[in-house]
Each structure stands twice: as structure tokens, then as C-alpha cells.
Amino acid sequence: MADLTHTIDRRRARKAFDSYVAAYDATNPRIALKVEHTLRVAELCERIAREAGFTPAGVDLAWLCGLLHDIGRFEQLRRWNTFSDAASTSHAALGVEVLFGSKGDTGVADDDGSAAGTIGIIHRFIDPSDELEEVIRAAVGFHSDYRLPEDLDVRTHAICDVVRDADKLDILRVASTDTVETVLNATEDELLASAVSPAIEDAFFEHRTAHYSERVTPVDYLVNLACFAFELVYPTSLEIADEQEYIYRALERPFGITRPFENKATAQLMNRMDGHLRAWVDERLC
């Protein structure tokens, strides 16, 4: 990655982040969960970028994009009391709005009486810099998209890939350590009785993640988590996934559940997928 002409003050950025989230209810466990997730993603971005050979300035930028990638989640929870984009709005687009403003940054209501424009907070984190701001805008705005736009420049694409890899890795951790009810909005019994949809089975053996519209049953979500491994861009990301083993837990013992799947076809398929995934990862790490 080519050298950047602007540097990033990490202490300033972290202070700005802490100040921003302090305005939200710290006693809300969902706020705490997102803060923890954000900091872990930033750390993962730093490691992935460093081991990929990014310049020091590039590593700093990757870290900052990780720190900012989910900043829209806090407003999403405040406004709609949910982390579901389907039930509210795109948290990635909301993050871009928080950072860069909306309605032309006017700060006043439009003539039609619609909501006032907002002034973004990006300059709490960095000095004005088109060079950095466009990369950050893309990394935040595209981090949860099914696919990245094809017209991104090489530097922006590289940073976006780092953030998307890091986000997937920590989503695997959250999904493995949280509860069935919180993650899937289903009971343990419903999960163990569910079947893998044909489209999800196809996606797995085609080595791709599935579109959200293809996921139907509770177990579909778990299989799609395991599919994250197939689309991790950087070798270090796959190494981390293998080290943490969360990709395997999604198929082997999701949420720490030791009871077998009641659906025998699901149990057999999950075992076959587990073996397939482990062999696929081993082949690429040896």
C-alpha cells in the first residue's frame, strides 16, 4: 500500500470514540456489547493489516476504520431500539451519516419541514483530509454489504477487505459466545429441530456466503457463519479464524450446546460440513 500523506493520532481517535459513546446508556448491555465488538475489530484490523505488509500509516488507517465501522449502531439502537437493519435502517449508512453528516450539512430544517441536517463528527477523529475521509467513508459504508463495489481503487478496496475480514471474525466470536435467543431469536429446541435450506447447503459447498434472503431456518444462520471462512481475503484472517475455532463451533457445538440435532438429516449434514470445512482450511494453511 502506497504511503499516505496524512498521519493518524490514535490517542485522539480513541478519546473521540470514548466521548461519543459516553452519550449513550453505558448500563445497556447492548451498548457494552457494541463497544467491545468495536474495539476488538479495531485490534483485528491492526493485526491483519500489519501482517499483510501495510505501511505503518496504512496500519493506522485500517485500525481507525475498524474503530469507526459500527459507529452507526449506537444511533440505530437509540432511535429504533434494535440492531436489525431490516426493522430500522442500514447501520452502515447511518454510520456514514454520523461521521460525514446529512442534508448537505446545513444544520437547519429543510423547507418541507423534514428533519434538520446534521454535521458529521469525522473531524473529531482526524484533521480534514480528502485522502483519508474517502477511504473511511467507503470502509464504514460498505463493511456490511454482501459484495464490495467493483470500481473501488486498490487502496480503498484493501482497507475495506481488512475491515470486512475483522468484522466477520468478531461476529463469529459473538455468535459463539452469546445465546441462541439473542443471536437467532429462536429457542434451543427450535434450532436443534431445524433443517438446512437447499440454498444454504449449495452456498456452503460452493464456498461462498449466502445472501440474507437465502437464510430461512435457524440453522441456516450457523451454516452461513461457517461460510465466512471461504470469503476471508487475507491469509492472516484465515489463520485467526482457525486459531479461535469459532468457525468450527458454528457447525460442531453452536452456543456451547452439547445436545445433538434432533433432525437426523441436519445432524449428518452438519458433520459432513464440519469435516469439509476443516479439510478446506487445512489445505490453505499448510
Results as ranks from 00 to 15, higher is better:
residue 4 L to F: 12
residue 7 T to G: 15
residue 9 D to Y: 12
residue 11 R to A: 15
residue 14 R to P: 01
residue 18 D to M: 13
residue 20 Y to F: 15
residue 21 V to K: 07
residue 30 R to E: 13
residue 33 L to W: 09
residue 34 K to A: 08
residue 42 A to R: 03
residue 49 A to N: 09
residue 49 A to M: 10
residue 61 L to Y: 00
residue 65 C to I: 04
residue 73 R to M: 13
residue 74 F to P: 00
residue 75 E to L: 01
residue 81 N to I: 03
residue 84 S to D: 03
residue 91 H to I: 02
residue 96 V to T: 08
residue 98 V to Q: 02
residue 101 G to T: 02
residue 102 S to A: 11
residue 104 G to L: 09
residue 108 V to H: 12
residue 122 I to S: 01
residue 123 H to C: 02
residue 124 R to S: 14
residue 130 D to Q: 11
residue 131 E to V: 09
residue 142 F to P: 02
residue 144 S to P: 02
residue 144 S to A: 13
residue 155 R to K: 11
residue 161 D to N: 13
residue 164 R to K: 14
residue 167 D to Y: 08
residue 167 D to S: 06
residue 167 D to H: 05
residue 172 L to K: 02
residue 179 T to N: 05
residue 182 T to D: 14
residue 187 T to A: 03
residue 197 S to R: 08
residue 207 H to P: 00
residue 207 H to T: 12
residue 215 R to D: 05
residue 220 D to P: 00
residue 227 C to Y: 04
residue 230 F to Q: 01
residue 241 A to M: 06
residue 243 E to D: 13
residue 248 Y to W: 14
residue 253 R to Y: 08
residue 255 F to E: 04
residue 257 I to S: 09
residue 261 F to R: 01
residue 261 F to D: 00
residue 268 Q to V: 12
residue 273 M to L: 06
residue 274 D to N: 13
